[in-house]
């Protein structure tokens, strides 16, 4: 895995668009396939941002740092803009074909998440698991969105499941399904940093006024 800076974030959204276009047959070969989504290895601590005096600028910088987590495949794969999750570090369409269904757990009569995903990761079968395993609701779709758009969505209580900022910070820092991102099982690159660091970044962002990156 390559270690890259925050510049990767824009690349990520770009590469998603590239999937849609480059997937056209005859144009895409293995050697020209979109690069695997790049992931940062670590997160900068909140203290690194203290030198940014402008509050909004600081909030934006903090969110961009936290965005390395939000836009890692571990989070993005289950925040699709359509009905189908993606999978692996390459963020390929989930195989087999599964769709969100009403509760984000699969179509009625179709494949439920729980057909394969159980309470815990099962590395012997290379299948990840978590007690809360499910798709994020469609209003929380992140794939194909810019970090600024994701930020605006996260803050909007109409789109974030009615969470207050405090609840949001708690969710990011404590939720066990969010926490799975750092414990994704063998063969999957974990989200950068730790959930604790991520929670601190989100809290600092909220404390700094929760400004969002532009675009």
């Amino acid at each position: 895995m390559r270690v890259v800076g925050t510049g990767t974030l824009a690349l990520l959204a770009g590469s998603l668009a590239a999937v849609a276009i480059a997937a056209y047959p005859g144009l895409r070969r293995a050697d020209a396939a979109p690069e695997a989504v790049r992931m940062a290895a670590g997160l900068k601590p909140v203290t690194d941002f203290a030198r940014i005096k402008n509050k909004d600028e600081r909030a934006v910088a903090l969110f961009e740092e936290a965005g390395k987590v939000l836009q890692s495949p571990r989070c993005m794969n289950c925040h699709p803009a359509g009905d189908r999750p993606t999978q692996t570090d390459k963020m390929l369409p989930h195989q087999p074909l599964v769709v969100r269904g009403e509760a984000g757990m699969g179509a009625p009569g179709g494949l439920a998440c729980t057909t394969c995903h159980h309470e815990a990761n099962f590395d012997a079968a290379r299948v990840p698991g978590n007690p809360k395993w499910q798709l994020a609701p469609i209003e929380m779709a992140w794939q194909g969105r810019s970090l600024g758009q994701i930020c605006a969505q996260i803050k909007d209580s109409k789109l974030n499941g009615g969470k207050t900022m405090a609840q949001l910070v708690h969710h990011m820092a404590e939720d066990e399904l969010v926490g799975w991102g750092w414990n994704p099982g063998a063969g999957r690159t974990p989200a950068p940093g730790t959930q604790k660091q991520f929670g601190e970044l989100i809290k600092a962002w909220a404390d700094a006024g929760a400004a969002c990156p532009k675009g």
Binding site: A23, P25, G26, R28, R29, K90, L92, Q95
Partner: peptide, 16 residues
């Protein structure tokens, strides 16, 4: 209007 694929498979990048 697409080229006939000259290298199979047609969609090599679709796998993990």
């Amino acid at each position: 209007g697409l080229p006939r694929p000259t290298q199979l498979p047609i969609r090599p990048g679709d796998t993990a």
